[in-house]
Amino acid sequence: MSGKPVTSKPVYGYLMDEDENFIIDEEAAPVVKQIYSLCLAGNGPTKIARMLTEQEIPTPGTLEYRRTGRTRRYHPGYECKWAANTVVHILENREYTGCLVNFKTTTQSYKCSKIIYNSEDKQAVFENHHEIIIDRDTWERVQELRKQRKRPNRYDEVGLFSGILFCADCGSVMYQQRYQTEKRRQDCYICGSYKKRTADCTAHFIRTDLLTEGVTENLRKVTSYAAKHEARFMKLLTEQTEDGSKRRNAAKKKELEAAEKRIAELSAIFKRLYEDSVAGRISDERFTELSADYEAEQKELKEKAAALQSELSKTLEATANAEKFMKVVRKYTSFEELTPTLLREFVEKIVIHESEALDGKRRGKLRRQEIEIYYSFVGKVELPD
């Protein structure tokens, strides 16, 4: 199967040259990058579509009409009216990472022209086919954010922590609240189950300004340590995420090799044993007894080898994830404030525990509240003292 496109019309952001190669569309590619940046900043497809419309950016259908005269996706009078599903299609398209995806759609039969989207296992994907518009790490991060779909609140805003803040006790997403009086305005987050009364849970109330301050402080500590001690930080991440000790990994590899060698020996022994049984050199009773012992040993070794392989694979994955996190760290060596884009590139989720009174009073002013920050790719990061 060749890595040639099966379509004559590439996705929005690319053009096709005479040799059927995808080349960057200088007019559309910046719009694609803008859409991904807006998503990373915490905006949903509907809001992104509205922003593009307000900027009077021609839609993909309008651009196609102006260049080719095709009217299939052109809507006169709505040349710059973007639809949310168009934004969704762009955000979910893997071809912006440089891979070619053929056979994305099919038809029910030659009698019915209705288009059906193929599952990924029926698609043909060719990596490194053309120049990228969106790097793979950004694309994957956007897919993660898309799973945590956020809607604007009653103030037509998407809260800084919306979609990534969770209750430690019931696991519910935390909701943004705003209390406003003549003297002051206070933003906070509370447990979704408590707000909706769908589960027996407490408020887990936390002020947005204090949360922002705490997360910013922790993020600065992590990025500063990583920038100053990169090698030490990488080692720390792999050891915290999975057992990354070289000595222990070497021992596991040696143990795995020994198990695989013994499995192969048992297969050879079992083969010879079967031949002896057929030739009558051993009795059926003796064959059954020995083969049962060897089979039991081999089964145990296979389970052990699978467990060792899984542990070693996790260690390799932990190293790769640590490098992904370091790419983000290098991108933001210093920052002035916690922006939605910065937060969502660094943080996967934040877990809020219920506050505890330190003075023994139920409504005491002196309180302590635990916040767990799970960073993208690597989870919780515990720096040495």
Score class of each variant (00 low, 15 high):
338 L>D: 00
285 E>D: 12
172 S>C: 04
356 E>D: 08
43 N>F: 15
35 I>V: 12
259 A>Y: 03
53 T>D: 01
381 V>I: 13
173 V>R: 14
311 E>N: 09
54 E>H: 09
39 C>Y: 14
303 E>Q: 11
304 K>Y: 06
350 I>G: 02
326 M>A: 03
3 G>V: 03
334 S>C: 13
183 K>E: 12
51 M>S: 08
24 I>P: 00
104 K>I: 03
267 S>T: 11
48 I>W: 03
242 E>V: 12
145 L>K: 01
90 I>D: 01
376 S>C: 13
185 R>E: 14
344 R>Y: 03
26 E>W: 04
251 A>H: 05
277 S>A: 15
167 C>N: 01
109 S>V: 04
168 A>W: 02
164 I>R: 00
144 E>G: 15
171 G>H: 08
239 E>I: 07
27 E>H: 06
231 A>E: 09
59 T>M: 02
304 K>Q: 05
145 L>C: 02
357 A>R: 04
86 T>H: 07
337 E>K: 15
19 D>I: 09
51 M>T: 11
221 K>I: 06
314 K>F: 08
135 D>C: 01
245 S>N: 03
235 K>A: 12
126 F>S: 05
320 A>N: 10
248 R>Q: 13
108 Q>A: 10
228 K>F: 07
207 R>Y: 09
107 T>W: 06
232 R>Y: 08
219 L>N: 04
287 F>A: 05
91 L>P: 01
131 E>T: 09
201 C>F: 04
66 R>G: 08
279 A>W: 09
267 S>G: 15
286 R>A: 13
323 E>N: 11
6 V>T: 10
21 N>E: 10
70 R>T: 07
252 K>W: 06
132 I>W: 06
316 L>F: 08
277 S>N: 14
78 Y>R: 15
132 I>F: 07
130 H>M: 01
221 K>M: 13
317 E>N: 07
67 R>K: 10
242 E>T: 10
269 I>Y: 08
167 C>A: 02
259 A>H: 05
204 H>Q: 03
254 K>L: 14
189 Y>C: 00
152 P>T: 04
130 H>P: 02
206 I>N: 00
257 E>F: 12
169 D>A: 05
142 V>I: 05
168 A>C: 05
53 T>G: 02
263 I>F: 03
199 A>V: 06
226 A>W: 02
136 R>H: 09
158 V>N: 05
155 Y>A: 13
189 Y>Q: 00
381 V>K: 00
253 K>V: 14
235 K>R: 10
170 C>G: 00
276 D>T: 10
308 L>F: 06
65 Y>A: 01
179 Y>E: 11
38 L>Q: 12
91 L>T: 01
92 E>M: 12
382 E>C: 06
359 D>A: 07
106 T>N: 05
63 L>D: 07
137 D>L: 15
125 V>G: 01
1 M>H: 12
91 L>C: 01
182 E>V: 12
319 T>N: 08
53 T>Y: 01
30 P>A: 03
312 L>Q: 03
201 C>P: 03
284 D>Y: 13
187 D>M: 13
178 R>V: 11
15 L>Y: 04
330 R>P: 05
382 E>Q: 11
148 Q>W: 07
110 Y>G: 04
157 E>Q: 14
